[in-house]
Design a protein around this nucleic acid. Structure first.
Length: 553
RNA sequence: UGGGUUAUGGUGUAAUGGUAACACUGCAGAUUUUGAUUCUGCCUUUCUAGGUUCGAAUCCUAGUAACCCAACCA
């Protein structure tokens, strides 16, 4: 019964390492920099790292890569923790690169002592110029040959705050002619008088990523350090530090990051959307952030399933947004409560139904009996969707039109008798008669109809604001277009429907519960909602064969 | 035009020298008190050129294309 699933290349490596006894257990880590909110691309990495830990009976650390105090904030730390938890994962240890600042400083001293690092007084521009180009070797810094003693003293003085920002850096002494630019005497410590979100003002020198990441992995005994492809050139340096420092040999493996159609995935771009108010915040439901998707109504299970479906490999990829939509529909179809809501209302009057009468009709709550039933009030006047009526029916249209019969969901079969229009030819009322013996679950009429439509009783309806979200960008790959990516924002990515009419049971909707508004899509209550003003977000539409039929003409 | 990485349907991912498969998308149909769900069927694939082999997506050679690398960012 177990479905045989092939291994991705990282699983193959791990199984090999376990089989040949290189390791008896594995330890992975998810290492975000707390300078932004997590997005669906991070979810891929989270599912990979934590998933590996779970699959192979190992553990996974959550480690914040907080070596740049200028960009990092506690707000981001908090959101990252919340998002990882919400996705359903538990870290073995909550750690910070800043926890290792003392050890990292010690590593730097060791390197100096071995003659493998030196303090450089050159400016940033000079260092860049001496770096050479990919096809041209760099040149040695005039400070490269300082004595070990002098380097030790200078580095200590850097730590003590004797120098201004940018005045001095510590560089590894490797090879200015290396093919790999990262090996041309990379900077390992810079002077930065900045307040750190955790260490406060204890330090005025901070290690660079390359001098912190690998060593942090090593300190934690991470067996498999998994990151994205752009770090491939860093691996040589990663290994160099581990070798020279003679510390635990963590190994780095790289996979291709996730790209998705109709969105952007860089923190820089997402930050721009937020700070320049193209969206309402990091958790705007249109954002590909975990918090945005959560607010929009995506379930963590559907996101995990998505991450599983897209796979892990090394080639550049561009995943269809429709795959994510498929995953959320698949999950919500079996979980979401069913309810009736009319988003584009027009009044339907059942002319032969007694005025002032309310019937309490029974209707099902979910996709199967286990969800139970509830009562929906029914009366002479109900709201129905404007698109469920056509005065002159298109071909293949089998909803309401003069003379046609349809069923009102969980109620009666009705026959359309006509409509009332205003001066501008807009339909303002639709008239029909109902067939009393066709009552749902007690139908003795013998009539069968082709369509069932949803409705909400006019006197009982609850009003709501509904936010309809669509893709954030008009083009598949905004980053690949000419000019500013923001020129390609979809102007219709948010459309507010107000008022929509909801069946009264929806007044008790709870935050975090998903509903299928029958025939319309999946929705959830937004946190902006109040008792006086209900607000719902559309998570995703239902698949709609009819709208495709219409488009085809 | 130095180095590195990657090339399999429209999009992803498998196949580890032996029938190119699975999922999404798209299309057609059946069922349906949601034009949803469910079910059935169909479409489209190994970057190019040589070579090794009984047999190549897989091995070899030469090309080509895409992406990454010259931050005191991560």
């Amino acid at each position: 019964m177990t479905e045989e699933k092939s291994l991705n290349f990282i699983e193959e490596i791990i199984e090999e390492d376990l089989k040949n006894g290189k390791y008896t257990s594995i330890l992975t880590r998810f290492p975000p920099e707390p300078n932004g909110y997590l997005h669906i691309g991070h979810a891929k990495s989270i599912c990979l790292n934590f998933g590996l830990g779970i699959k192979y009976g190992g553990n996974t650390n959550l480690r914040f890569d907080d070596t740049n105090p200028a960009k990092e904030e506690t707000e981001y730390v908090d959101s990252i923790k919340e998002d990882v938890k919400w996705l359903g994962f538990e870290w073995a240890n909550e750690l910070y690169a800043s926890d290792y600042f003392d050890q990292l400083y010690g590593f730097a001293v060791q390197l100096i002592t071995k003659g493998l690092a030196y303090v450089d007084d050159s400016t940033a521009e000079e260092i860049a110029a001496m770096k050479g180009t990919p096809s041209q070797a760099g040149t040695d810094s005039p400070y490269r040959s300082r004595s070990i003693e002098e380097n030790l003293r200078l580095f200590k003085e850097m730590k003590e705050g004797k120098y201004q920002d940018g005045e001095k850096v510590l560089r590894a002494k490797i090879d200015m002619a290396a093919m790999n630019m990262h090996m041309r005497d990379p900077i390992v410590y810079r002077t930065k008088h900045a307040h750190h979100h955790r260490t406060g003002d204890a330090w005025c020198i901070y290690p660079m990523y390359d001098f912190a990441h690998g060593q942090s992995d090593s300190i934690e005994n991470i067996t498999h350090s998994i990151c994205t492809l752009e770090f491939v050139p860093h691996r040589e340096l990663y290994d160099w530090f581990i070798e020279k420092l003679e510390i635990f040999p963590s190994k780095q493996y790289e996979f291709a990051r996730l790209n998705m159609t109709y969105t952007v995935m860089s923190k820089r771009k997402l930050l721009q959307l937020v700070t320049e108010s193209y969206v309402s915040g990091w958790d705007d439901p249109r954002m590909p952030t975990i918090s945005g998707m959560r607010r929009r109504g995506f379930t963590s299970e559907s996101i995990r399933n998505f991450c599983d479906k897209i796979g892990v490999a090394k080639r550049e990829n561009m995943i269809d947004f429709s795959l994510l939509e498929f995953c959320v529909r698949e999950d919500l179809n079996r979980k979401a409560l069913r309810a009736m809501a009319v988003l584009d209302p027009v009044k339907l009057i059942i002319t032969n139904y007694p005025d002032g009468t309310t019937e309490e009709l029974v209707t099902e709550n979910g996709p199967d009996e286990s969800f139970g039933t509830r009562i929906a009030p029914f009366s002479r006047e109900v709201w129905i969707e404007r698109e469920d009526f056509m005065e002159v029916p298109a071909k293949k249209y089998f909803r309401l039109f003069p003379g046609s019969k349809v069923r009102l969901k969980s109620a009666y079969i009705i026959e359309c008798t006509g409509c009332v229009k205003d001066n501008e030819d807009n339909v303002t009322e639709i008239h029909c008669t109902y067939i009393p013996e066709s009552k749902s679950s007690n139908d003795t009429s013998g009539i069968s109809v082709k369509a069932t439509i949803h409705w909400v009783s006019v006197p009982h309806a609850a009003e709501a604001e509904i936010r309809m979200y669509d893709r954030l960008f008009k083009v598949e790959d905004p980053s690949d277009e000419e000019g500013d990516f923001k020129n390609y924002i979809n102007p219709d990515s948010l459309q507010v429907v107000k008022p929509a009419y909801l069946e009264p049971s929806l007044k008790d909707a709870a935050l975090g519960t998903s509903y299928q508004f029958i025939r319309k899509g999946y929705f959830c209550l937004d946190r902006d909602s109040t008792v006086e003003r209900l607000v719902f977000n559309r998570t995703v539409t239902l698949k709609d064969a009819w709208s495709r039929e219409v488009k085809k003409g």
